[in-house]
């Protein structure tokens, strides 16, 4: 297990290194400079600004400096806000994004398990049909459409929740719902399929032959076996939430990293884009590592062999 963990952490670092390298040189391909948005400046002013951003050095030096900085969490200075380091910009904004993202994940997955399990238990009845329709709708309606609808009907019309900005928990409800819909739908579908499969397996037949009641069979045998594989889709769900948050944070004017990403893209603020790319990649890698380890802990078949596949 320790050996496996060490290997995985090594791969995580390697992946991040490749991500940083590739993004850095991709960004160098871009035409913009910190001066693109500025008015006409004198030669000496330009030289000064180039020095400030370290752009006067050869590219390989810039790269090494950036790499050294990134290890310490320093991603350079923003083009857009020339006095702000990217790391400060991001660290002040990551809190709201994490809160909404985690809430959406927890709410979505827990409700999804419930909906999926109920659907599988009542397979081919109207209950099953209803839960299937709910989950397929959740997958088909983009989060930004849902966000606008929630904002208008629950926020503006019904006055139940604030329509935008960032304050206490009440401000997180609508964005959480908008972002949680897809994880809910995806996990409901996944759990239903998995559980239908498990329910037709031989060991469920044996459990019935032991005289277990219907609920006993579900609770003791079917649920655990169908929930373990759910861990594998947590990574993709995290991606989904990150993607969705870019638009949803914009709609609800939440000062998170998703909103910052869109802003930076529209203003060609490359250092910030790079920093965000690395942050996103880092978070995703951690989620994937975490889910892999969790899978190894809960599934006895993997626990002892110490292999991931």
């Amino acid at each position: 297990m320790a050996k496996y963990l060490a290997k995985r952490i090594f791969y995580l670092i390697l992946t991040l290194f490749i991500v940083i390298t590739v993004t850095f040189f991709l960004m160098k391909l871009l035409p913009g400079t910190p001066l693109t948005n500025q008015a006409k400046l004198s030669q000496s002013q330009i030289a000064l600004i180039y020095k400030q951003y370290g752009l006067d050095k050869p590219e390989w030096q810039q790269y090494l400096l950036y790499l050294a900085g990134a290890v310490k969490g320093d991603f350079g200075t923003s083009f857009q806000f020339s006095d702000q380091p990217v790391s400060y910009l991001l660290s002040s904004r990551i809190g709201p994004s994490l809160q909404i993202g985690l809430q959406a994940m927890v709410v979505g997955v827990v409700l999804g398990i419930l909906v999926g399990a109920i659907g599988a238990m009542r397979q081919n009845t109207w209950v099953d049909t209803t839960t299937t329709v709910v989950s397929i709708l959740g997958i088909s309606i983009p989060s930004f459409v849902l966000a606008v609808l929630l904002q208008y009907y629950l926020g503006l019309k019904a006055q139940l929740f604030p329509i935008a900005e960032w304050g206490g928990f009440i401000y997180t409800v609508l964005p959480t719902l908008a972002l949680g819909a897809t994880p809910l739908a995806e996990s409901a579908r996944f759990v239903r399929t998995e559980m239908v499969d498990v329910l037709s397996s031989d060991y469920i037949e044996l459990a019935k032959a032991k005289g277990l009641s219907r609920m006993g069979v579900i609770y003791h045998h079917a649920l655990r076996n169908s929930l373990i594989p759910l861990i594998t889709i947590v990574g993709p769900l995290a991606v989904n939430i990150m993607t969705g948050s870019m638009v949803v944070e914009n709609i609800f004017s939440i000062p998170g990293i998703g909103e910052q990403f869109v802003k930076s893209v529209l203003t060609n603020d490359y250092p910030t884009i790079m920093g965000l790319t690395i942050i996103y990649s880092f978070m995703l890698c951690v989620v994937l590592l975490f889910t892999d380890i969790l899978y190894g802990i809960v599934d006895p078949r993997i626990r002892l062999t110490g292999k991931a596949n």
């Binding site: 397996s201 031989d202 060991y203 037949e205 044996l206 459990a207 019935k208 032959a209 032991k210 005289g211 277990l212 045998h221 655990r224 076996n225 373990i228 809960v298 599934d299 006895p300 078949r301």
Partner: peptide, 19 residues
């Protein structure tokens, strides 16, 4: 079931709960 009448299934590889 399991009290008065019990059953042994064909395939032992799949008839035990893996977890």
């Amino acid at each position: 079931r399991g009290q008065d009448i019990a059953e042994i299934f064909q395939d032992p590889m799949t008839s035990l709960d893996p977890t």
